[in-house]
């Protein structure tokens, strides 16, 4: 899928992956998440717990919301809080947010007791986003994070992403819209000849 692709990121910075449709942005994120195995090469995360694979330090925020319509909004979130293990690396100071606070933060606190089936697409998306807040993990992989979100929610999302960066976290995101993130690097994927990881070295 990819050839000669390499990049490294430091705590507190974000990488925005851009490129045409079908170029493999989602595949890149899924590879980083450990959901697609690598043919060659390696993914390393420094400072993580030893003996723990890198994907267990990662929150994957993909196209699918992983929201169960039959469960209430709060039940959905509480399940992920207990089920997904928290992970830390040195230099990352993120902490766990209470599920109810997370829902309030994203403006869907009033739906906590309702079945998730009653939520609109944007509300489901925000519920899925709450999942990243209730379990602290240093790396966020976000595939088109702004899809189905209105402008206000998009601003909130940016705030959360910046807060995550400020706490020393990492974000890799594939997006078409311009995200005003602090300390952003751009990885532009192109077809044919080797992809160009433009600012890769500028980081150090």
């Amino acid at each position: 899928m990819f050839e000669d692709l390499s990049f490294s990121l430091e705590g507190g910075s974000a990488l925005v992956v851009t490129g045409a449709n079908g170029i493999g942005k989602s595949s890149l994120l899924r590879t980083l998440a450990g959901l697609v195995s690598l043919a060659h090469g390696s993914i390393r995360l420094e400072g993580g717990a030893p003996d723990t694979p890198s994907e267990e330090h990662i929150h994957y925020f993909g196209h699918q919301d992983a929201v169960k319509p039959a469960l209430s909004v709060l039940e959905n979130l509480q399940f992920w809080q207990s089920f997904a293990a928290a992970a830390h690396v040195s230099g990352f100071s993120g902490s766990s947010v209470d599920p109810m606070d997370a829902l309030n933060l994203l403006g869907i606190g009033h739906t906590a007791r309702l079945p998730a089936a009653f939520l609109s697409a944007g509300q489901k998306r925000r519920l899925s986003l709450c999942r990243l807040l209730v379990t602290p993990r240093p790396v966020w992989l976000m595939d088109e994070p702004t899809s189905a979100l209105d402008r206000v929610s998009e601003t909130q999302l940016l705030g959360l992403m910046n807060a995550h960066l400020a706490a020393g976290g990492l974000i890799v995101t594939a997006t078409h819209s311009d995200l005003a993130l602090e300390k952003t690097l751009i990885l532009h994927l192109r077809a044919g000849d080797a992809a160009a990881p433009s600012p890769e070295e500028a980081l150090q």
Binding site: F118, V152, G159, N162, A166
Partner: peptide, 18 residues
């Protein structure tokens, strides 16, 4: 109730996005 407009609470941890 789910679709009702809800007064959005200010996001405490969010920083202004440039």
């Amino acid at each position: 109730a789910a679709s009702a407009a809800h007064p959005r609470s200010a996001v405490a941890t969010a920083q202004p996005a440039e």
